[in-house]
């Protein structure tokens, strides 16, 4: 019995049927769909990271007394960073399982997926989508620590050189502020750099870099508007 006959007989004997064409097409669509879904979520995550950076600002890195890496991790929203990495990985895995993906190297797919996520994410951030979405999370998910809350926490560490709050009174080289925990502070601004955008008037919200010199006393090196970067 030749091979062809053996094979035909086995197919007939076991009634082996070819997989239907639609199942192959569906599998391919599912992989492409998964890729697009993962890319979309990755892009949104990236846009919220951009939003977090714009809110918190990297300029404060130099004022942290921790390592740069540690400081970056404090500023970046870890949840969204993890989501970005997870879904970026998912998008790469799903695209690499599509029919002709093997034609391009793993590095190219990583680059392409990352590039698309960055492009869409940046666009989403520029159009205000990230801010809107972040606000939705803040208002709808109780356990979610919003970027604004995180910002407040980061800028409320006088021992580490950051302070923020609302101006209560301006008296020459001395500033009186009420921080976001309603505690009053006396600020020495004699040698502080005051950003041009800061309006030194009562009720104005500001953030400061400097050093805590006593109980509720702070010597400012820099004064910036609270919402300066948004």
């Amino acid at each position: 019995m030749n091979n062809a006959q053996k094979i035909i007989d086995k197919i007939k004997g076991e009634n082996i049927q070819p997989r239907p064409e639609w199942s192959f097409a569906s599998a391919e669509y599912i992989k492409w769909g998964a890729f697009m879904l993962f890319i979309s979520i990755g892009s949104i995550s990236f846009s919220i990271i951009l939003f977090a950076i714009s809110v918190n600002g990297f300029d404060m890195l130099q004022h942290f007394k921790h390592s740069k890496l540690e400081s970056i991790l404090v500023i970046l929203p870890i949840l969204w960073l993890a989501t970005l990495i997870l879904f970026l990985g998912g998008s790469i895995v799903s695209i690499m399982h599509t029919g002709r993906a093997y034609k391009y190297s793993f590095g190219k797919w990583v680059g392409l997926s990352t590039g698309i996520s960055i492009a869409i994410g940046t666009l989403f951030f520029i159009t205000g989508g990230a801010k809107w979405l972040e606000h939705k999370f803040e208002t709808n998910i109780e356990s979610y620590e919003s970027i604004q809350e995180k910002k407040t926490a980061i800028w409320s560490q006088p021992e580490l050189g950051t302070l923020s709050g609302e101006i209560v009174e301006v008296a020459g080289d001395t500033l009186y502020i009420k921080d976001f925990k309603s505690r009053f502070w006396t600020i020495d601004i004699s040698s502080a750099f005051i950003a041009p955008k800061v309006v030194m008037e009562t009720t104005e919200q500001i953030k400061l870099n400097g050093k805590k010199t006593g109980d509720a006393i702070f010597k400012a090196d820099q004064i910036k508007p609270w919402e300066a970067c948004q």
């Binding site: 091979n3 094979i7 239907p20």
Partner: peptide
């Protein structure tokens, strides 16, 4: 091996690109 491979080819015939 060849026989098993041809069975797979048969099963996946609709998936040929």
């Amino acid at each position: 091996i060849l026989q098993e491979a041809f069975i797979k080819i048969w099963k996946n015939l609709n998936g040929y690109d």
